[in-house]
Amino acid sequence: MGRSQREARWFYLLSTPWAIGFLVFGGGPIVASAVISLTNWPLLSSPHWVGLANYRQLLHDSTFWTALWNTLYFGAGSVALTLVCTFGLALLLNLNVRGLWFFRLVFYLPTVTSGIATALLWQLILNPDYGLLDRVLSLAGIPGPGWLASQDWAIPGLIIMSVWGAGNTTIIYLAGLQGVPRTLHDAAAVDGAGWRARFCHVTLPMMSPVIFFNTVTGFIGSLQAYALILIMTNGGPGNATMVLGLYVYREAFQYFNLGYASALAWVLLMLIVVITAVQFLIGRRVVHTEAARGGA
């Protein structure tokens, strides 16, 4: 047996943990989910083949359309507000500020503590009666909208919370900004470019691959976020914060409609694929590819 053959055997042997994971926790469940979505499968009894009936039912399910809209609303709002806030903070952090470690720590802390404890914390912050946010607004003379108790303001409240928890994007932007060569800025300054021109013609083009990366991964993450929403509002008030992920969970583990839940999950997957593909199409025109330096 030659060296390359032995090497290949070792490859398959050592990649086994990942391969098991792929079969049981990745690719396998995707295929299984597609098949399950074509059945009517109440937990505790056996599945029935129903073809595309679950998908037809979706079209007439008003909760589904609400959840789809809310998913897009939350996803787009969260990605957009996160982009503006975290890029802004990273620009400031890149000015050679003192105490960089402190700011990085503060901005990243909410990301690592994300879980039920901070979900309950934000439930309290966004509470109409005992909430911090309404209290702060009232100091500025603004009557608070009641956030999680309001049909219109519950999702904006969740978006604000998601920006608070998105400190990792600040760190990625900062790392990207630190990689923009100073010489480019200096050359532009010598040519008489002001800070605004340098921002538009040096920083933005050089940063466009990083912005693209953060936007794509931000959408992938926010479109499937539901754990915190489950804890904080469980979809309410009414269906104001019902998102697709939460609807999947509810159909599967509260109503035990495994087939319908799988159909919903597939719509979510397709939504993520389509939105990611659209971003790549737009990205090909907008992202400054010459800026992609170094190897893969």
Partner: peptide, 21 residues
């Protein structure tokens, strides 16, 4: 390539088949 692909699979797809399993 499959490994990279699985990084964008939503958890919602996986929980139902794995629960059945």
């Amino acid at each position: 390539a499959l490994l990279l692909g699985t990084m964008m699979i939503p958890g919602e797809i996986i929980i139902v088949p794995d629960f059945i399993l």
